[in-house]
Design a protein around this nucleic acid. Structure first.
Length: 880
RNA sequence: GGGUGGUUAGCUCAGUUGGUCUAGAGCGUCUGGUUUACACCCAGAAGGUCACUGGUUCGACUCCAGUACCACCCACCA
């Protein structure tokens, strides 16, 4: 823990996190999704930080100008809500009322700055190598300027308008929320059927029905053929007789209930649309506090939940209640930002028009919706995993105008002022007194939608009000150098909220896409698959508990390996402990390497970057390691470039543990070549650095060449072909022989612990004799005899390797029957395989269409298999 | 109602163009181990009709169609 803090502050002090906008290096930028400034980091943040840090460290080591911009979000509704709750707990009954706008905003500001400090320190705990000198906040001065600029630009382009629309009103929090922020919950409530003139209508909400004076049915519904659109009739209703009008509209489903309904346009989206279509009156029944208005007569002032039973009773006493279905299930709209039940209301709100075709994009004028579609469809932006592109398009197809105003105080206030009937929209307030600013604030996603470039703006320029938005963008060096960003990495749950809106706003405001690749991670769940939530503390894993116990590196590995993009993952302590063990293994292996150096009297720092001595002086194991490392470098590099983090992590894990530690280090005990040892360890440590930055940096300090920089600034390892090929064939033979002996033991059911004697007859006797010691050790033999004679006698099992024929004799242990069975099976399989490939090669289409390499590979496979088959047949004959 | 994903060892999950995969890993289980780093270790073992049905193919965990169950998203519920 202390080690991690020490390393982090060493990194930070070195300035290596800071990106330079004056270099010629290729830029690689990530904008960190800003955590809400409302408190603590959770695992969702931790996985985001781990993934992005891997991208960034990899890019930095590969010599790119890597920039990772951190920041926080003011999270309008959520934050205001948290603070109001807190104030209430402190005894202030109604903070909005008692404090007023200014004082409440100050209280929130204070809370936010405390919370930001917490978040900053938590981001550091994860090892995130972000550029703190560029830290931003969605509500600081530079961002405020840009928010206002973009608002006014849209306003001038007629993309923003104000209008009366039905909105999702939350009476509890006294604000509206966007469609995306509404959550639906199943509830069982009584469903009432009332008599309404000649009709029967059903409802779960009798309290909205006071003003209902339209009765709607489908135009083709035969049951109601005799009623004409526009007919009126008198009927008895809750508070006396009313005149009702018949409306025919196709949106009514004749199958549902009686096929007839009354409408409440002020409090229902669907009803509102019907009313708009037919030019009907709209009347408010429920006020914004959730209480009934004078239209309710004797029920005026009652809360809707209290009034319901009374209204039903009254209708019943009038003989208008037909029946009650007590077990009716329906869904209720809730505010997902911690509020109450949504009560649709008509309100004057600000909207962004997504269909108006005035946006300049690639030499044509199209709508915001179309820009969003084009950016992804054209391939300018690609989404990982790809299937989310479908989801994205589907969402856009159903997208309605975006309501951007909120009736809360915490946020960017709408930059529009009024004086009587005059209206003024501007980045700065208008001159003169008597102007009153619009009381509403902007949806929090409005400001975060600008995030990829608003964070890169030169703050000084935003203080100069003589500059236009375009000039600010063009004169900001960071924007010019680092935008568009490379990767947007975030959870799939905010694809619509944020990713889509960034595409919308950034293409509009800057003419550029915000990012080239979207990498979406899944949600982290508890072991039982449930969402981790504060209400179920037993399901929670807090990164701040985990890190002191297992280390940030282990936590990072546990969240990355075995996790594929876009899919949820279950995280639990044993998994993290497993990677803690891995970190420990790496640590011990390094200690061992250092001990070997000490024994050999070699100072590890004195060994420069040299990779090998003359090939002739290297043992087979050394050559094997060098060769395998080249493959590892290639795989890891390609994999990371393709964002295949889980696969690469697994590869590194098993290479380090199974190959380097359990195979190579065991084999080279006592005869280690310190050059090779160090080269191997340094390579592994470097490749692992993006995944587990802390241990690797610490180890690097012990093993680095004299005068080398910190690991995070090291050049990424490059595969060296000359180290790869020179010993592959012989190596393969030895390894194959060891494998063959092992599998023979298991075929012949020889106890694993039993040491056996093996005789090898092979054309490669020289090579195998030279490696006798290793083979004995690795295959756990009593003795090994190697003979060059390829004679065939009975008590021998044959193994056909790809590049050598080897007969193994397990002295006196071969069971001829078993051997025959084994060979027969192999023969059968080979025959089928050969037939298949032959057929494939006969197929003209395949030969024509496939790449030459592929065809060549198939031919090779065929040849090898045919040879093997011949040998198997010979051997079978000999045994029989 | 529309859409997406999942279903592989007791548990959590990998499996990239269909074939040397006789399907892998970690954890768990079992056996053995004080071999000059590591018991947070080493050497092994057991454990799977890859949800089901059908199709394409010489060959399917992999491709196609359908079924079942689970999860999620969107829309709607008078």
């Amino acid at each position: 823990m202390k080690v991690e803090d020490r390393i982090y502050s060493m990194w930070e002090k070195s300035g290596a996190f800071r990106a330079d906008n004056t270099t010629d290096k290729e830029p690689f930028t990530i904008s960190m999704p800003p955590p809400n400034a409302t408190g603590q980091l959770h695992l969702g943040h931790a996985v985001m930080l781990a993934l992005e840090d891997i991208f960034i460290r990899f890019a930095r080591m590969r010599g790119k100008e890597a920039l990772w911009v951190p920041g926080t979000d003011h999270a309008a509704i959520a934050t205001e809500n948290v603070v109001i709750k807190k104030l209430k707990d402190e005894g202030i009954r109604d903070p909005r009322e008692e404090l007023g706008r200014e004082k409440l905003v100050d209280a929130i500001k204070e809370f936010v700055s405390g919370s930001q400090d917490t978040i900053r320190s938590q981001i550091r705990k994860m090892g995130s190598s972000c550029d703190w000198s560029r830290e931003a906040y969605t509500m600081d001065a530079p961002r405020h300027r840009l928010v206002n600029e973009v608002f006014c630009k849209m306003f001038a382009d007629d993309l923003i308008y104000r209008g009366h629309r039905i909105v999702n009103w939350d009476p509890k929090l006294q604000t509206n929320v966007s469609d995306d922020e509404v959550e639906w919950e199943d509830r069982t409530d009584p469903f009432y059927t009332f008599r309404y003139g000649p009709f029967e209508i059903g409802t779960v909400r009798p309290e909205t029905k006071f003003g209902d004076k339209y009765v709607v049915m489908h135009p083709d519904d035969k049951r109601y053929k005799k009623y004409k659109h526009g007919d009126t009739f008198e009927c008895e209703w809750i508070n006396g007789p009313i005149t009702a009008t018949i409306i025919k509209d196709e949106s009514v489903d004749p199958e549902m209930g009686t096929g007839v309904m009354t409408i409440t346009p002020w409090h229902s989206g669907v009803d509102f649309e019907i009313a708009e279509r037919h030019g009907l009156d709209k009347e408010q029944v429920i006020d914004f506090e959730g209480k009934l208005l004078p239209i309710a007569g004797e029920f005026e002032g009652m809360r809707i939940e209290d009034a319901r039973a009374n209204i039903v009773e009254k209708l019943d006493s009038k003989g208008l209640l037909v029946k009650i279905d007590e077990k009716y299930t329906h869904t209720v709209a809730l505010n997902s930002r911690g509020g109450g039940v949504i009560e649709p209301q008509i309100k004057l709100q600000w909207f962004i028009d997504v269909n108006r075709q005035v946006v300049q994009w690639k030499d044509r004028k199209i709508s915001l919706k179309e820009v969003m579609q084009d950016a992804v469809r054209s391939g300018d932006i690609n989404i990982i995993p790809e299937r989310f592109e479908k989801t994205y398009f589907h969402w856009i197809d159903n997208l309605r105008d975006w309501c951007i105003s909120r009736q809360i105080w915490w946020g960017h206030r709408i930059p529009v002022w009024y004086k009587g009937a005059e209206e003024f929209s501007g980045v700065q307030p208008p001159d003169g007194d008597d102007w009153v600013q619009d009381p509403d604030t902007l949806d929090t996603w409005f400001s975060s939608a600008l995030w990829t470039w608003s964070t890169l703006v030169d703050p000084k320029l935003t203080e100069d009000y003589s500059l236009t938005l375009k000039e600010i963008i063009e004169k900001s060096p960071d924007i010019q150098k680092f935008h568009p960003t490379q990767v947007m990495e975030t959870g799939y749950d905010i694809l619509f909220f944020w990713v889509a809106r960034m595409i919308l706003m950034t293409t509009y405001a800057t003419g550029e896409i915000p990012f080239k690749t979207v990498y979406l991670h899944g949600m982290i769940r508890a072991r039982d698959g449930q969402k981790m939530s504060k209400s179920k503390p037993e399901t929670m894993i807090d990164p701040l508990d985990i890190i002191p116990q297992y280390g940030a590196d282990a936590l990072r590995m546990a969240m990355i390996v075995g996790q594929s993009p876009g899919n949820d993952q279950k995280l639990y302590e044993e998994k993290i402990a497993g990677y803690r063990n891995f970190i420990n293994k790496l640590w011990n292996a390094s200690r061992f390497v250092l001990m070997q150096c000490e024994d050999a009297g070699v100072d590890p720092h004195s060994i420069a970057g040299s990779k090998q001595q003359a090939a002739s002086s290297l043992s087979l194991a050394d050559r094997a390691l060098l060769s395998a490392l080249q493959d590892l470098i290639t795989d890891v590099t390609n994999g990371l470039a393709d964002y295949r983090l889980s696969e690469v992590g697994e590869r590194l894990y098993s290479f380090t543990w199974d190959y380097f530690c359990d195979w190579y280090l065991e084999l080279s005990k006592g005869e280690a070549n310190t050059n090779v040892l160090l080269y191997g360890l340094r390579t592994i440590v470097a490749l692992l650095h993006p995944y587990c930055p802390f241990v690797t940096e610490e180890l690097w300090g012990h093993i680095k060449p004299e005068g080398a920089d910190m690991l995070l600034q090291q050049a990424w390892p490059v595969a060296d072909a000359s180290l790869k090929n020179h010993s592959d064939k012989e190596l393969q033979i030895v390894i194959d022989v060891i494998t063959a002996i092992r599998s023979l033991r298991s075929d012949q059911e020889i106890e694993p612990a039993k040491k056996i004697t093996v005789i090898i007859h092979s054309e490669h006797a020289d090579l195998l004799s030279a490696q006798q010691e290793h083979i004995i050790r690795m295959a756990r033999l009593e003795t090994l005899t190697v003979s060059s004679a390829t004679q065939k006698h009975e008590n021998v099992a044959s193994v056909f390797l790809s590049n050598a024929e080897v007969h193994l004799s397990l002295e006196g242990l071969i069971d001829v029957e078993k051997e025959v069975a084994r060979l027969s099976k192999e023969k059968e399989k080979l025959e089928g395989f050969i037939r298949g490939i032959a057929a494939k090669l006969d197929n003209e289409k395949f030969v024509q269409n496939a790449k030459e390499e592929v065809v060549e590979k198939e031919r090779e496979k065929l040849a090898v298999s045919q040879q093997k088959l011949i040998k198997v047949e010979e051997r079978l004959k000999a045994l029989k």
